[in-house]
Simulated scan of single mutants.
Amino acid sequence: MGSSPVCTITFGRVAPCLPVRDIRAAFAFYSGILGFQKVFENGDPVGFMVLKKDAAEIHLSQNRAHVATTVNVFHMFVSDIDAFHEICEAAGVRIIKALKDKDYGQRAFVLADPDGNRIDVGERRPA
């Protein structure tokens, strides 16, 4: 395979866009439990939001007919997986896969947001 012309192009941020049935309820979850802040919203009524926390960015898009999939919609790294897991458990967040050390050098778990969107959360561990 030859070299692609796209190899000379620098890519910027990539942010997952999550469909949610109730954008206000989703915002309450992502801001109140996970600590994200709204940096943009669009529509009247609001149908789209951009949320940020540190280097992480999530886009929420209202879709009242949304049905969650059984695959993870994105992976997010955190600096203290054990503390984050405790926060999620204390808040009653639905944990899909239990917190455990993985053979590929991460400690991770999978949670579901109120719309059933699955998020794989991990922390890289030294080898």
Rank of each mutant, 00 (worst) to 15 (best):
R24S: 10
R24D: 15
R24K: 12
R24Q: 14
A25R: 15
A25H: 11
A26C: 09
A26L: 10
A26E: 06
A26M: 08
A26D: 10
A26G: 06
F27C: 13
F27H: 14
F27V: 13
F27L: 15
F27G: 02
A28N: 14
A28K: 13
A28H: 12
A28T: 13
F29R: 04
F29G: 01
F29Y: 12
F29A: 03
Y30M: 10
Y30I: 06
Y30S: 06
Y30D: 08
S31Q: 13
S31A: 12
S31E: 12
S31D: 11
S31W: 05
S31Y: 01
G32K: 07
G32P: 02
I33T: 08
I33L: 03
I33R: 00
I33G: 01
I33W: 01
I33M: 00
I33F: 01
I33Y: 01
L34D: 03
L34K: 03
L34N: 01
G35A: 07
G35H: 06
F36V: 07
F36Y: 14
F36A: 08
F36K: 10
F36G: 03
Q37E: 14
Q37C: 09
Q37T: 11
Q37F: 00
K38T: 12
K38H: 01
K38R: 14
K38E: 15
K38G: 04
V39C: 02
V39Q: 09
V39P: 00
V39N: 03
V39Y: 01
V39D: 09
V39K: 10
V39T: 14
V39F: 03
F40E: 06
F40K: 08
F40H: 10
F40D: 07
F40R: 05
F40M: 12
F40Y: 09
F40C: 00
F40I: 00
E41S: 09
E41I: 00
E41C: 00
E41L: 01
N42S: 02
N42Y: 03
N42F: 07
N42E: 07
N42V: 00
G43Q: 06
G43R: 05
G43C: 02
G43L: 04
D44M: 03
D44L: 04
D44H: 06
P45A: 07
P45I: 08
P45L: 07
P45D: 09
V46Y: 03
V46S: 04
V46R: 07
V46W: 02
V46G: 01
V46I: 15
V46N: 08
G47F: 09
G47P: 03
G47S: 14
G47T: 14
G47Y: 09
F48Y: 15
F48W: 15
F48N: 05
F48K: 09
F48M: 13
M49D: 08
M49T: 03
V50C: 12
V50F: 09
V50L: 14
V50Y: 08
V50H: 12
V50S: 12
V50D: 11
L51Y: 02
L51F: 04
L51M: 12
L51H: 06
L51K: 07
K52S: 10
K52M: 13
K52C: 12
K52A: 10
K52R: 15
K53G: 02
K53Q: 13
D54W: 04
D54H: 10
A55Y: 11
A55M: 12
A55G: 06
A55V: 13
A55N: 13
A56Q: 11
A56D: 11
A56E: 11
A56F: 01
A56Y: 01
E57C: 11
E57D: 04
E57Y: 04
I58T: 03
I58W: 00
I58S: 02
